[in-house]
Amino acid sequence: MEIHRFEKVWIAIALLLIVGFIATIAYGALGPGVKMVDASGGTIDPEAVAAGESGTAFDDPGVRQTGPNEYDVYVVARQFQFAPGTSQPIEVPAGSTVTFHITSPDVTHGFNIAGTNVNTMVIPGQVAELTVDFDETASYGIVCHEYCGGGHHTMEGTIEVVPQAEYDGPGGS
């Protein structure tokens, strides 16, 4: 087997590069603690969600307080609205840890808080569960980033992260 010595050097460097990439990703998961959306949200019957009879918090989606500075936000993403999010903004206080539970009663949607790393698919039958720290007061847009039908480009919403002092609890908006 004739392999030029330059090429052998290059193979070694290439393998090193690949290992370096994998190490970076592992660092991101272990160091800053970036976690992937996974199966922890469980499954759900999309037709029950559509009918409002799932027996879960998705029947009355919205913000719920679960502890000091801890909130659960249940969002139903449907053609072509986030509920809550579109008709009224999702409101949480700054400095809180928020767990989003998102599902779809119809087709596949996307949920991206624009300009942040909060980004997930919303698949009928699955509940996307993601925990996020909102440290600072801000107003974010939510964009559906997966094609979901003819009105897809109009599907958007808002999250208001308000100062602690101005926050008057879930449902206060």
């Binding site: 290059w10 994998i22 996974d38 698949i123 699955q126």
Partner: peptide
């Protein structure tokens, strides 16, 4: 990677395979 319903470990395995798939393309470049 950002689909719900798929455990993170399986995503990591796919990622490792994908990264090694860079090798044939880097070899090709040379």
């Amino acid at each position: 990677y950002v689909d719900p319903g798929i455990p993170e470990g399986f995503k990591f395995i796919a990622m490792t395979n994908t990264m090694f798939l860079l090798l044939p393309s880097l070899l090709t470049a040379f």
